[in-house]
Nucleic acid binder design. Structure first.
Length: 850
RNA sequence: GCCCUCGUGGUGAAAUUGGUAGACACAAAGGACUUAAAAUCCUUGCCGCUUGCGGAGUGCCAGUUCGAGUCUGGCCGAGGGCACCA
């Protein structure tokens, strides 16, 4: 019997799918649609195991839905703008465009070799002007709607990448890509007004039932809605300043007021410009927040002004005004009232500057003499030492009462604050979408008119310049708009803009406008979106914003959320290896005889230190190249392995043994199939076969299980189900109990294997001449009802025996039968039965005592 | 510090959601076939006394229940997110 030659067979089917355009989709209103989308890749040149996992999971779903009669949209494209191309081009003196295009061609071939069912006619690439010209139109649309603005602002400046980063792109004070310490810098920047939709973005989360809770909580925290109150404090000591506005969530602790703290960027700071000591203090502040130690230490420091703030409810109380490093300008009003007893930061500050600490909330189980010492109390309790607020239950009654009082006196009002900030989208890079804006000679903003779009990136560019290469392209910058000489904006858009609407473009990738409404309204929303959890906030929040912004004032798109279902898959991990000098080693440099001790392959005397298993990354060299694995084992084997063992949402450990086991399954199954074909199918004319009830039952139970596990994304269990199926069929062959209903059941089984191992299943079905009529098998529920049951016999909740019965047996009959069983009869003789609990066809539990 | 998730054999895990714990696989050991090896097949979760049987058992401690991996509370451990957000 021939071995399964995956090289020939997989190629054969892949060519056939390509020739026939098997996965091409178009609108079909008679069918239910299903939009299956995996996060599109950055074309780095080679696919990695993370891609293999992502796209295999998506492909299983797409093929399953398609077999179920859905009209499935399953497109693929390239997130092809971004820094790696620019860096690679700079280092190797290449053209970023050519570098990117050749990477795309290479990765496309690799994805095809995986056998994924993609409609390649819809392929898009964000770095192509065919794509970004529409993005420029959208930018201008947002501009017209007032959702884009430019302002001078402090930005997170990455000194290595020489670009601005969004807040979300700063991790632990470092750039998310470069890892460099981020600096503060004042620059003119373009912003999307995402904060306009804070409330919508928060409320929208509630409707996303098919999103992981984890992601929704992360977004919720990121948006950071808080309820509170703004309060005006009267200021004394300056003729220029009348009052200062603060935001607080605890207006009920107002009587604990002992200082007022301002951000160093607060407008009041303008009056201290010429004060050298203040400028020095300000410098010190900008240092904190950038280095790791200072975040860890987080020492509260302040600069005392000659101003005093008057207590809004008691004119006799006047407290000093400070500038303080822990107050942020871009949250609230850049000013806080300090209540040391009930806020740890305020307490730290008060202790340092010896300011009064007045306790105004006491826990329920403490007396009125309760005082805060070194630990602020922010728990529930009762208000004390606070005049009219005394005795109120904190926080539920006291906060609303405090707001009411302040509102009546017109010194404060209820206020909701969000942590979310507007999205800075300017990047000082060449390899990104040009912003379709120019500036006239008076530096006024001029929109690039529609007919002049796209603003294309210049082709020949000198990348060896400091900062943004486009800044140095004098010819390119010059543009005449409405007869006026203008200079183009040289910043390009954050690449997250590119990925915020690509799912819309997929619906009508060749349309002359950004998207065709009819197509979008047919396909959207994405029914299942699949990708890494690392995009939980950035990409997913931005995409949600885009849909709301596109619909703002226009309501063109029916769905107001882009992704109905979201699935976040786990990472692919591998052990890490280091040599004796702490250098990372790649798995193929390492060898082992016993699986315990490892040594260098080319130098067996050299020991290798095995480290923890971590997600595959180039820097740790613990990667496995999918291309080679596919070459050695075939796509179906890789697909089996990447789905088996671990549930898709969890991390998976790469193991060579696991890979081999997956391959062994493919080979075993092929062997079994060949035997079936030879011994049975070729002898179909033999009419002596009987109907096999047991097989019918097995198949229907399998359909039930696979359906259940597919819907739950328990793809690892499906692989186990296939192993069980193999074992079952193998036994059938051994028993030679083949039957007249064998072919139909076997075909059903193969159909269910199609989403996971499409090449093998296609080949087997085709050999049986069953491929053309393939569809997802229907479940015949009558085969799910059992006629025989294994009933567990328990004594005091502990399993003692199992009894086999058929359904007709009455409870009384069953009980008396059990009592005669030798496993339990002894117990019944010695003990007395109190009662028993009978769960039909499942369990009998006898409660006994001495 | 706050928020979230997860703790099941040597390993990855399953358990249709409160009813036979460990399906399916990997590894290891033993056995069968073989002159031998590879391949293949069979057996083995743990602790006791030879098979058979008995006992404990899903991080730990309580609780609810006839019955808990599953529900509740507390503790311990691991991972992830946020971090001066007033």
């Amino acid at each position: 019997m021939d071995k399964y030659n995956f090289k020939i067979i997989e190629k054969k089917w892949q060519n056939l799918w390509e020739e026939k355009k098997s996965f091409k989709t178009k609108i079909d209103k008679k069918k239910k649609k299903f939009y299956c989308l995996e996060m599109f890749p950055y074309p780095s040149g080679k696919i990695h195991m993370g891609h293999v996992r992502n796209y295999t999971i998506g492909d299983v779903l797409a093929r399953y839905k398609s077999l179920n009669g859905y009209n499935v949209l399953h497109p693929m494209g390239w997130d092809s703008f971004g820094m790696p191309a620019e860096n690679a081009a700079r280092q190797n003196n290449l053209d970023p465009k050519k570098w990117t295009e050749s990477n795309i061609n290479n990765m496309k071939l690799q994805l095809k070799e995986l056998g994924i069912s993609v409609d390649w006619d819809r392929e898009i690439s964000t770095c192509s002007s065919d794509y970004y010209k529409h993005q420029q139109k959208i930018f201008l649309e947002f501009y017209d709607k007032g959702l884009v603005y430019r302002k001078e602002n402090y930005v997170n400046w990455d000194p290595v990448d020489q670009t601005v980063l969004a807040n979300e792109q700063v991790i632990d004070g470092k750039g998310w890509r470069s890892g460099a310490l981020v600096e503060r810098k004042k620059l003119n920047q373009w912003f999307f007004k995402i904060t306009k939709f804070s409330e919508d973005l928060l409320n929208g989360l509630e409707k996303l039932n098919e999103w992981p809770n984890k992601v929704k909580i992360m977004q919720k925290n990121w948006i950071g809605k808080s309820f509170g109150c703004e309060i005006d404090f009267k200021i004394e000591g300056s003729s220029n300043i009348d009052k200062i506005k603060c935001f607080t969530t605890r207006p009920d602790t107002l009587f604990g007021f002992s200082f007022l703290a301002l951000s160093v960027d607060h407008p009041v700071s303008n009056f201290y410009k010429d004060n050298n000591k203040f400028e020095e203090f300000k410098k010190n502040c900008s240092k904190t927040g950038t280095t790791e130690e200072s975040i860890a230490q987080a020492e509260k420091i302040g600069f005392k002004t000659d101003l005093f703030a008057v207590h809004p409810l008691d004119k006799n109380i006047k407290v000093p005004v400070y500038f303080a490093n822990f107050v942020l300008m871009d949250y609230g009003f850049g000013a806080v009232f300090g209540c040391p007893a009930h806020d740890q930061r305020d307490l730290d500050f008060a202790l340092k500057y010896k300011l009064p600490i007045k306790t105004v909330v006491k826990p329920d189980d403490e007396g009125d003499d309760f005082t805060v010492q070194k630990e602020a109390y922010d728990g529930p309790g009762v208000i004390i030492n606070s005049g009219i607020f005394n005795g109120l239950k904190a926080p539920e009654d006291s906060i609303s009462k405090a707001i009411e009082v302040l509102e009546n006196k017109q010194i404060g009002k209820k206020q909701i604050n969000f942590r979310l900030k507007d999205w800075g989208i300017s990047r000082q890079r060449y390899w990104g979408c040009p912003i379709p804006i120019a500036y006239d000679e008076e530096n006024n903003i001029v929109k690039v008119p529609d007919e002049m779009l796209p603003i294309k990136l210049p082709d020949d560019i000198n990348l060896k310049t400091q900062g943004n290469p486009l800044d140095h392209q004098e010819d390119w910058k010059k543009i005449v708009i409405n007869g006026k000489n203008c200079n183009l904006e040289t910043d390009t858009l954050d690449t997250f803009v590119d990925s915020s609407w690509y799912f819309l473009r997929f619906c009508s990738p060749k349309n002359s406008s950004p998207f065709d409404l009819e197509e979008v309204n047919y396909w959207m929303p994405v029914d299942q979106y699949i990708g890494g959890v690392e995009h939980a906030i950035l990409h997913l929040l931005y995409s949600r914003f885009f849909l709301k912004a596109l619909n703002y004032n226009t309501n063109k798109i029916d769905s107001d959320e882009p992704f109905r279902g979201l699935f976040t898959q786990g990472m692919v991990c591998h052990e890490t290896y280091k040599d004796e000098n702490e250098n990372w080693l790649s798995p193929d440099e390492v060898s082992s005889d016993d699986g315990k001790n490892f040594f260098l392959k080319n130098k067996p005397s050299s020991k290798v230190i095995v480290g923890s298993s971590e997600s595959m990354s180039k820097s740790k060299k613990n990667t496995i190249n999918p291309e080679e694995i596919i070459k050695n084992y075939g796509a179906d084997s890789v697909r089996i392995f990447i789905l088996s063992d671990s549930p898709p949402e969890k991390d998976i450990q790469w193991s060579e043994q696991g890979m081999m086991a997956a391959h062994k399954f493919i080979q075993k199954f092929w062997l079994l199939h060949s035997e079936i074909k030879k011994n049975y199918i070729d002898n179909l004319s033999n009419k002596n076969y009987k109907f096999d009830e047991d097989l019918e039952k097995f198949t229907n139970q399998l359909i039930n299980k696979i359906n259940y596990n597919l819907e739950k994304f328990s793809y690892n269990v499906i692989i186990a189900n296939f192993h069980e199926t193999y074992n079952y069929l193998k036994n059938k062959l051994v028993e030679k109990s083949l039957s007249e209903n064998f072919l139909i059941n076997y075909s059903k089984i193969l159909s269910m294997m199609m989403p996971v191992v499409p090449h093998l299943a296609s080949e087997c079905l085709d050999e049986l001449n069953q491929l053309k009529s393939i569809k997802w098998p229907d479940l015949d529920k009558k085969y799910l009802t059992q006629s025989e049951f294994n009933i567990v016999v328990q004594i005091n909740g502990k399993k003692k025996a199992i009894i086999k019965v058929n359904e007709e047996l009455e409870e009384n009959e069953l009980i008396s039968k059990i009592k005669k069983m030798k496993e339990v009869s002894k117990i019944f003789k010695e003990k007395k039965i109190n009662k028993h609990i009978y769960v039909k066809n499942k369990i009998v539990n006898f409660i006994v005592h001495d």
